[in-house]
């Protein structure tokens, strides 16, 4: 049996682009290339109905998805109330609601 020394070996937090499967991320960007134009300003999150009351952070979730980090993204995006305020504000004109629906469709399995 494995010995118990009273601690575990921590798993790395690193986003490892070599190990991540970027297939879904590539598909998402191909379908909505404007998502790449995000400059990380955070206006979407600042105005977010859900984000003001939960841990939901649209900017972070879609950035992680673009890096191939899909775990939990679907559940996070379920918090979106689809109010549309973020799309109204985005300075890069990104169809944020479209992004949310697309990622959810693509990552339904995750």
């Amino acid at each position: 049996m494995a010995l118990n020394f009273g601690y575990n070996i921590s798993k790395p937090r690193v986003i490892d682009i070599d190990r991540n499967n970027l297939r879904k991320s590539v598909e998402i960007i191909r379908e909505l290339p404007e998502l790449q134009a995000c400059i990380g300003c955070g206006t979407c999150t600042a105005s977010c109905t859900a984000g003001n009351l939960t841990s939901f952070n649209f900017r972070k979730v879609h950035t992680l998805v673009r890096r191939g980090e899909y775990q939990g993204a679907y559940e996070e995006l379920n918090k979106c109330m689809l109010c549309g305020k973020c799309r109204l504000l985005c300075p890069r004109g990104i169809n944020t609601r479209g992004v949310i629906m697309l990622i959810k469709r693509k990552l339904g399995d995750f």
Partner: peptide, 10 residues
């Protein structure tokens, strides 16, 4: 990757 707050390697 400061916008996600995680280290990144490639």
């Amino acid at each position: 990757d400061t916008l996600t707050g995680r280290p990144l390697r490639m």
